[in-house]
């Protein structure tokens, strides 16, 4: 564990708490992509199967349980409790275009040809693009509530912080995980556009609005 990974994980944790806070305080999931949330639940469930047979640490165990439970809880809130506030007509990204290629990539790039390892690879590739339905929705509506942008910023910061973590581990532990690093860099790059608007507008006290 190093400072970058710890801050990254805490940022990830914060992003989920901000998302829950957004839904509970506005009593609405307006502006949140159900598809992205469903993809995250898929990512966590397929990646954390090792909960059942591999012990890493208490920290690791608690975080995995939290990520699985919170992502399922968000799905429940969106699908049942606040269902009327979710508008599927603007959440139109075709997730098949993400799931298919990620499955193919997992078959091509993995560390071992076993089901848990294939699912782990799949989850890494899927996580890297899971935000796309959300960003697509943002692009379509052209604006977002400030709290939603804080959620996305915390999520993006988590990914960005994993990059110095990998550089640090490369030097100190001689550890390189090419699959996670490649997918992680792609994932972080997807946030660049968003971060630009977030830093130049939201953090200056303006509303998140994309240029027409």
């Amino acid at each position: 564990m190093n400072i970058f990974r710890l801050l990254g994980d805490l940022s990830h944790l914060a992003s989920i708490l901000i998302l829950l806070q957004k839904i509970q305080s506005t009593r609405s999931c307006r502006g949140i992509s159900f598809k992205t949330q469903a993809l995250y639940a898929t990512v966590f469930i397929t990646r954390y199967l090792d909960l059942f047979y591999d012990w890493v640490s208490l920290y690791n165990f608690v975080m995995k349980i939290f990520f699985i439970a919170s992502s399922c809880y968000v799905l429940y809130l969106m699908k049942y409790k606040y269902r009327p506030t979710h508008d599927p007509s603007i959440d139109t990204f075709r997730v098949e275009y993400l799931l298919g290629p990620c499955a193919v990539l997992a078959l091509l790039f993995h560390y071992r040809f076993t089901l848990p390892e294939l699912l782990w690879s799949f989850s890494i590739f899927l996580e890297s693009v899971a935000i796309l339905p959300q960003l697509f929705m943002l692009q379509r509506t052209g604006e977002a509530e400030t709290i939603t942008t804080h959620y996305l910023a915390a999520l993006g910061a988590y990914r960005a912080l994993y990059i110095p973590n990998w550089i640090y581990r490369w030097f100190t532990e001689d550890m390189v995980d090419p699959i996670a690093v490649t997918a992680g860099i792609v994932q972080t790059a997807l946030y660049l556009d968003f971060f630009y608007v977030y830093f130049t507008k939201v953090l200056q006290g303006q509303k998140f609005e994309l240029p027409a």
Binding site: D9, D50, V56, Y111, W120, N165, D177, A180
Partner: peptide, 10 residues
């Protein structure tokens, strides 16, 4: 080495 690697990241 890949053979011994454990997925300890989240």
């Amino acid at each position: 080495p890949v053979e011994n690697k454990r997925h300890d990241e989240l």
